[in-house]
Simulated assay, not measured.
Amino acid sequence: MKTEKLHLVWAHPRTDSFTAQVVREMQDQAAQQGITVSNLDLYSSNFDPVLAAHDEPDWNNPKKQYSEDIHRLYAAIEESDTIVMVFPVWWFSFPAMMKGYLDRVWTNGLAYGEGSSLKGKKFRYVALVGGTESGFGKYGWENHMRDYVVRMMNYLTVEDTRIDFLYNTLGMEEEISASHYQQLLAQARGIVTALQS
């Protein structure tokens, strides 16, 4: 199934970050391919990642009415056939803002359980790693994140899931050139291009 409506969800506190640049490249690539794109910047939108007691899932009530913002944010997922999550890897995982989005919006009766509407959608994760591929893989972090994401999406009945890593975004372990960043941006654009195959 070719992508027609893509929803980008991303997390970084700075709009001039490389994460933001990756998002812009992917959005532009999608537009060039005739894909309709919506964009959720979790920081700029002032998303609250804290799960309050009134929004805690009720396992006995899959039709529970959550806060208005949860239903609004989930509706953007329902309206799209492909969801792309873009984020820097902090402490070998999602940033707290992204994890809060998953905790609050992907909830019982919406993303899973009775009434779930995610089956048949494509999900792509684009993880920006500050260090090198060898450094990240040395302790199994790539396999850990890939396994975590795939199993999480399997629980949500999503079969078409992939996580891509953009490595050495900070040059922490070795010097990098401007051409390296261009290669990373090309990799990001390629993720969008592959959605049409």
Rank of each mutant, 00 (worst) to 15 (best):
T3W: 09
E4H: 12
L8E: 09
P13F: 00
R14D: 14
D16I: 08
S17A: 09
A20D: 09
R24H: 08
E25Q: 11
M26H: 14
M26A: 05
D28W: 06
Q29A: 10
Q32A: 14
I35F: 10
T36P: 04
L40Y: 04
L42W: 00
Y43W: 11
S45E: 08
S45P: 02
P49N: 09
A53S: 11
H54E: 15
P57K: 05
P57M: 07
P57L: 08
D58Q: 12
P62K: 03
P62N: 03
A75F: 01
S80C: 11
D81Y: 04
D81L: 10
T82M: 03
M85Q: 11
V89A: 10
W91L: 05
S93T: 11
F94P: 00
F94I: 00
P95E: 00
M98I: 00
Y101M: 06
G109T: 00
E114D: 12
S116V: 01
K119W: 02
K121M: 07
K122R: 15
Y125L: 02
Y125P: 00
L128A: 07
T132D: 10
S134G: 09
G135I: 02
N143F: 11
H144F: 15
D147V: 05
V149P: 09
V150I: 10
Y155D: 08
L156F: 14
E159L: 08
T161I: 14
D164P: 09
T169E: 07
T169V: 10
G171W: 01
E173A: 11
S177K: 13
A186T: 14
A188T: 08
I191Q: 14
V192H: 05
L195F: 12
